[in-house]
Every structure is written in C-alpha cells, then in structure tokens.
Design a protein around this nucleic acid. Structure first.
Length: 589
RNA sequence: GCCACCGUAGCUCAGGGGUAGAGCAGCUGUUUCGUAAACAGCAGGCCAACGGUUCAAAUCCGUUCGGUGGCUCCA
C-alpha cells in the first residue's frame, strides 16, 4: 500500500466519497470522449450522493449508452491509471482546451492571477482543482444511474446539455447499500402510498391537483385540527376569505406585477379577476375594514383558504408541488416593537408543531432581497436586520441566502429532514413592510398618532398537501394512531362472530375511534394480510374465545405479538397510544 | 417552459404491422376457517387523444394531452 492510500484511510468518509466521485466523473468524461470524440465537455462535480458530468453533443444518450460508457470506465479503472496534477499558465490552459469551448469559458472567467490546475489520467485531461484519488483503481464500485437535461451554468437562457448521473463508492457493499436505499425510498414514495392506501388520486382533467379520497381527507383534517389547537394556545383567530378577486386587488398588492405568471385569471362581466395564490391581500383588506388601536395589536389572522398557483408543466410532483393547495397560513399585524416577540413566539410554536412528528431539528435559512422586489431598500435593510436579530436571540444557526426572499420581504425558512434524510421546506416566516404600505394600513398609537403596522406572513406546515406528502414518506405510510384513517379493524374469525364484532365496533366508535369490521367471507389470514398492507395500526381479532371472555385479541401492525384485552382496557390502551409512534416494518409489500 | 423517457383492464406489467394477454383487485357461487393470500366460475380494454403512412396501425411517423427523471422555478 503506498503512502497516498494510507493518507486516504485517515480522511473522513465524506472526503473520500468526494474524491472517488469526482474521479469517477473524470473517468466517465474520458469514456464518453472515447465513444464520441466530438463531444464537448462542460462540468463534472461530485454531489451529495454521487456525481455527474454535462456533455454537449448531437447524439442523444440512451440507457444502452450508459452500459457502454460504464464498461469503458471499468476498463480504465482496471488499468490503474494515476491521477496527476499539473499547474498551467493561463495561455497554456487556453491552448490546451482550445477545442473545448465550455472549458475556455471557465478559464476566461477565472481571475488573471489565479493559478490553473489540471488533472490527467491516461489520455484524459480536465481543468480541475482536485483533489482526486491516487489512481483510477481506487474507484472500487460505481454505477451510472440516469440521463437528464441541464442548462449550461444553470441558466435557462443557455443551451441545454445532457447530464449523466452516477454514483461511486469505496467498495461494492457500500454501493449496494446505497442502491438498496434508493429502492426503499421508491417503496415509500407518497404517490405510490396514496394509491395503495386510497388517500388521493390525480386526474388529467385537473393536472397537478389532488383529489383527496375519504381516507386522505381524514389525514388532511387531522393535520388541520392539530394546527387549530396550537392556534388557540398561541392567540390566533381563524378567518375565511374569497377565492377570486378583481385584478384591482392584485395590482394594489403587487402580485399583478410580480407574480402574474403564477396566477389564474378569468373574465366575467367584462371585468378581469384573479384567483388567489396567497391570502395576504385579503387579510390586509380585513385589517383595513376598521380603525385599529394599538390595543388591538398584535392581530393574528389564520386562514386555511384554498390557493391556486399556476406551476409550469414539468415542475409539479405528487402532493409536494401542486397547483392547488391550502396552507396553515396566518398573518400577524403588529407594531414594529412587537416584531421580535412575535417572531420568537412563532419559532417556539413551529418547533412545538414539529415535535409530534419526531423530525430531526430543522435547518434554518434566511432569504434576503431578490432581484424582483417591492418596497424601499431601507425597509428591506431594516426587515433583514430584524430577522437576523431574532435568529441570533433564539440561538438558531442559519445560512443566509442572497436573492432568495419573497418579492415583498425577507424570510426565514425551515427545512425538515425526513426519515430517509431528504430535506423539505415546510415552515416559513416572512417579514413584510411593503403590503401595509400598499394597503395604507394604520393603527392609532398611545399618543393618538397614526402609525403603520408591520405584517408577518408565517406557516408551520407550509402547504398541507406538501406536508402530508412529507409525513407519508417519513412514516412510510405507517401513520401514528391519531393520523390513521382507520385506527383499528375488527376481524371476526367466522360469520358467527360478526354480531360480537359489531358490539365492539359500536363501543369504539362511541369512544371516538375510527374503526370498521372486515366481515368479508375471507379467511382470517387474508383479512390480517389486507389490514397489514393497509397499514392499519390495530387488528382486533374476535373468535369463540374472545366472544366467550368478552375480550378482543389485539395484533399491532408493527409486530405479531398478541394480547387479549377487554373493551375498557382496549379503549384506555388506544387513548394512551394516540400520539405515540407506531412505525410499521419497511419490508411489507 | 427546456432535455430525455413513458402512456395496453381499477393496480402491476407482458405483447407488438394481420384486429388483445397474465397476476392481483372486482363480481357470483362454494368454504366459516385462530394471526400475512381458501377454491371455482364470470366479467372487464376504441391499447391516452387526434392526424398521417399502409391493403391493414395498439404496434411505424407527426401533433396534442397527461405522467416520470432531471434542469430552471417554488409552499
């Protein structure tokens, strides 16, 4: 073993993965150039889970090409070619890459005094900072995964390149484990679960718009009830507002200028109307409907109103990106002095709201002023400064994201990792000095002077639709008892037990549980199987013995343990476990 | 919107220039059963839509509509 390899053992696994994958990207570009010498190569970095390389060539890659490319890559790896770093002057680099326009563009964008490094293996050379593994052989296990389109430099005005994604690991076991993880993720895809568990459907008649079936509606409503309970402790008042407004409103709010391409418009009575993509202007109107005293503030309006946003075809995805949805949306009108306290209260509330789902702590991002924005720069500066202070006072570490804010104000976004490590943007807190200005919102302060309130937009779950998609995948469909559409199914062993099953069912329904009886003419085994597949938390089996003893035999979805209980014990057990995690096993299908 | 791929029964999928197939689900019988699939029968499709090529199109070509994986954009 050479010294370079010894060093490799000491660096962290992440760093090792990065080197392996970055090296694999080079080897892939090498392989592609062998088959298509005319290909123009763009960039090929390592990513979180693998690597990619972007190519510009007339031939369009097919899945069979991936096999061919992979074969050549394996050959290169077998050849055990060393990766060699060299430093070039700018002129040398420009000369060396004269046939690679994308590389030329990169070189020309480097500052003049920057040194330019290249990495070489075999006959392939790439502009690259490194680092790489010592030789191609250290890429021990790799797989090319997919072909996709990608814009050069991520700009949709640029040409579309072909991207090949792959992944690579330090050994075959790690690669196989990763591929298995991808397969398991597919099993808990919320779109698949939605079909199998009869939660929701989609229909081309209303693209990207979920139809919630009865069971899905139960989950949806439970989530909303959960939020409503928090609202009552945190001092929110729920309101109901229209769906359709004259465009006069959208012009006043700024949506007409800044959000038009995402809105639906209709014409009625020779008047143009827009369907709301957000609730905020309606709440501003409500606020303005009477004269407010400082004593009214903070005023917190919550609204589960249905929103419609036109999303470009190609961006929608199951429940997590739809064209119609509702949010656990609320707007807080308050004095400037109250902003920090309100923001802090919200942070407390959002952390509380995630607790029950056992998410890992959210990642926090502060999004700053975007290019397209309304309001004075000084207002933006003030708003951004307040949010920073709030984050610091609440000891939340965060990433500042330039240009990522909403058009009306900066925002704090909460990204939550799910059970298999994917991150979702759920909660958001947005500060807005602009809308109060546009709607001329006022309150009378203690001295009797007219003042302008501040406005906070905030949501914990974000869209209920997206949130539901996330928790379905988080739980793999095995929802905790309080969210399960059917909490227990009663399984009579033979027809003569149906009457007793009915008795049990009535008592459970009376105790406010969602239960049913599987009275089909099927064997018990078959009923158990179906209940397991439906991920019903409890199966209550009743036969001669139970009927005799006035009990039920309980089978939980996550194990096969059996326990007999009478109805009172059962109700207590269910009540005690309403909010505890009852995860299902993963391999059921 | 862009690039690539896909669209056959409720679901999962096979087939592929000569007129459509399986498993599961459904329905009807029989079976009344002790912890993940009883048995038998029946029914189910303008092969996404429209146009073209052809003696003949589910199959080939084009367009549209949906969907999938990415890119850009976003709750």
């Amino acid at each position: 073993m050479n010294s370079e390899s010894n060093d490799l053992i000491d660096i962290k696994l992440d760093e090792l993965h990065h080197r392996i994958r970055h090296s694999a990207a080079h080897i892939m570009a090498d392989a592609v150039l062998e088959i298509y010498p005319e290909a123009k190569i763009a960039i090929g970095p390592a990513t979180q889970d693998g690597f990619y390389y972007d190519f510009d060539l007339n031939h369009t890659f097919s899945p069979e090409d991936l096999d061919k490319i992979e074969k050549i890559m394996l050959q290169r790896i077998k050849e055990n070619l060393p990766f060699e770093r060299k430093e070039l002057t700018r002129d040398q680099a420009l000369k060396m890459f004269k046939d690679q326009p994308y590389k030329i563009e990169i070189i020309e964008n480097l500052s003049k005094d920057e040194s330019i490094s290249i990495y070489e293996h075999g006959n392939f050379v790439d502009l690259c900072e490194g680092p790489h593994v010592a030789t191609t052989k250290e890429v021990k296990a790799l797989k090319l995964l997919s072909i996709a389109g990608a814009y050069w430099r991520g700009d949709e005005n640029n040409s579309m390149l072909q991207r090949i994604y792959g992944t690579a690991f330090e050994n075959k076991e790690a690669l196989d484990a990763h591929l298995l993880k991808i397969e398991e993720a597919a099993l808990r895809d919320h779109r698949k679960l939605g079909r199998e568990l009869e939660l929701f459907i989609f229909d081309p008649i209303s693209p990207a718009s979920p139809f919630f079936l009865p069971k899905g509606t139960i989950i949806y409503n439970e989530l909303i009830d959960y939020v409503k309970n928090l609202y009552s402790t945190f001092g929110y008042q729920e309101v109901i507002t229209p769906l359709i407004f004259s465009t006069d409103l959208w012009k006043q709010s700024g949506h007409y200028d800044n959000y038009q391409e995402n809105m639906y418009f209709i014409e009625v009575d020779e008047r143009e109307f827009g369907v709301k993509p957000m609730n905020c202007p309606a709440h501003a109107l409500m606020y303005a409907s009477k004269l407010h005293s400082y004593r009214d503030l903070p005023l917190r309006y919550a609204d589960f109103g249905r929103l419609h946003r036109y999303e470009r075809s190609g961006v929608t995805h199951g429940l997590t990106r739809v064209r119609t949805f509702s949010q656990d949306d609320a707007h807080i009108f308050c004095t400037e002095d109250q902003i920090e306290q309100e923001a802090t209260n919200f942070i407390t509330m959002i952390q509380k709201s995630y607790e029950i789902f056992e998410f890992k702590p959210p990642r926090v991002a502060l999004s700053l002023r975007p290019e397209k924005s309304v309001g004075d720069k000084s207002l933006w500066d003030k708003a951004e400064k307040i949010l920073k202070t709030v984050l610091e006072n609440n000891k939340l570490s965060y990433d500042a994201m330039a240009g990522e804010g909403a058009f009306y104000g900066p925002k704090i976004d909460f990204f939550v990792p799910d059970a298999i490590g994917r991150e979702w943007q759920l909660g958001t807190l947005q500060l807005d000095f602009s809308l109060p200005e546009r709607f001329n919102l006022e309150y009378i302060n203690q001295e009797g002077n007219v003042q302008r309130p501040a406005m906070l937009h905030r949501a914990m779950f974000g869209s209920i639709e997206r949130f539901m998609g996330v928790i379905l995948e988080h739980y793999g469909g095995a929802l905790p008892l309080w969210l399960s559409p059917i909490q227990a199914t009663i399984i009579p062993i033979a027809d003569r037990h149906i009457d007793y099953a009915e008795e049990i069912n009535q008592q459970l329904i009376y105790a406010n549980f969602r239960t049913n009886i599987d009275s089909r003419s099927e064997r018990m085994n078959s009923k158990i199987r179906d209940a397991q597949l439906q991920k019903i938390p409890y199966m209550l089996i009743v036969g001669d013995k139970e009927q005799e003893e006035k009990t039920v035999a309980i089978r939980k979805r996550q194990d096969r343990s059996q326990e007999n209980m009478n109805i009172d014990m059962l109700i207590k057990h269910l009540t005690d476990n309403l909010y505890t995690k009852i995860l299902g096993t993963q391999q059921e299908n």
